[in-house]
């Protein structure tokens, strides 16, 4: 039979088990930005043309030029080099300030959501207490008590941040534990910890992982805010908040000191947000 005799194009035989791995666009964009940020963070010296801490009194407050693409500050330090070196510190903040709250909050949320009852009531009151205060105010208060500096900032964020992960995971665990596969695990004679962490948690953790990405962006903002206020990283360290604060007195005459670190913050924050969106898309589970 010739194909021309048919009133329609014969459907091509589709291979039965071909799976197209379609990555969401947001995920790819986020990964590219993150790769860019991490490269600068791990190897700043390869890309920075100058020493970020070296004064140069012959080039004070120079506007952007070929020699200094991002200009220089009031001590003649090259802003491009300082912005690049700040990646190291700010990416560290993003990771280390969030990893402990993420892991601890997820574990606590798993237990709370699985057992429920009195534990959940107590936990609910604790969460209410914490979220009554704006996050930044609470962190600033803790830093003010412990004293300024990066280590204390990690402690402060850790003390508060786990609550949000725990709440997300606990809520999702409550949904999952009512499904039949949780009961199936119990009938199979599995222990509570196996059911909670091996069976339910993988189905309950994706909102927390997506939030982790957002949280890293928020922590960069928080870390730079604290740096700006003089409560986080301390000058002369290259950190975006410190850099912006250093330029604030010259903003009308030398805008470039504050603008370029600000753009770096926006770009990095955008990268994490895109990554979060892409992950959310990717982790939708098929039922």
């Amino acid at each position: 039979m010739s194909a021309g005799a048919l009133p329609f194009e014969p459907a091509k035989a589709t291979p039965t088990r071909r799976r197209k791995l379609a990555l969401p666009g947001a995920l790819i964009a986020g990964l590219l930005i993150l790769a860019f940020s991490l490269t600068l963070a791990f190897f700043p010296s390869l890309f920075a043309p100058f020493d970020p801490l070296k004064f140069d009194y012959k080039a004070i407050l120079k506007p952007p030029s070929l020699a200094h693409p991002f200009g220089t500050d009031n001590f003649g330090r090259d802003m491009l080099s300082r912005t690049i070196h700040a990646y190291t510190l700010d990416m560290q903040i993003a990771f280390f300030a969030t990893i402990v709250p993420m892991l601890a909050g997820t574990a606590i949320g798993t237990i709370v959501g699985y057992y429920g009852g009195l534990l959940e009531t107590l936990f609910g009151r604790l969460v209410d207490g914490v979220i009554t205060f704006p996050f930044i105010v609470l962190v600033i208060a803790i830093v003010a008590v412990l004293g300024p500096g990066l280590a204390n900032m990690y402690v402060a964020i850790g003390l508060v941040g786990w609550v949000f992960y725990a709440r997300l995971v606990a809520g999702e665990m409550k949904v999952q534990k009512r499904l039949d596969y949780a009961d199936a695990g119990r009938v199979m004679g599995y222990g509570d910890m196996r059911i909670a962490f091996r069976h339910l948690l993988p189905n309950a953790v994706s909102p927390a992982l997506v939030y982790w990405m957002t949280d890293m962006a928020l922590c960069i903002l928080l870390g730079t805010s604290l740096g700006y206020l003089g409560l986080g990283a301390q000058p002369p360290a290259a950190e975006w908040g410190v850099l912006i604060a250093g330029g604030k007195n010259f903003f009308t005459t030398a805008w470039w000191i504050s603008i370029f670190p600000g753009i770096a913050i926006v770009l990095t924050g955008l990268g994490f947000s895109l990554l979060g969106n892409g992950l959310a898309e990717l982790m939708k589970v098929k039922r």
């Binding site: 596969y181 009938v187 004679g189 039922r287």
Partner: peptide, 24 residues
């Protein structure tokens, strides 16, 4: 003791969508 009992008495569930862990 309960685990031993459940080894011998098993259950099959109603909902074919909810009774299997979608990630396993």
């Amino acid at each position: 003791a309960r685990r031993q009992f459940n080894r011998r008495v098993q259950m099959i569930f109603q909902d074919p969508f909810g009774s299997l862990n979608p990630r396993m």
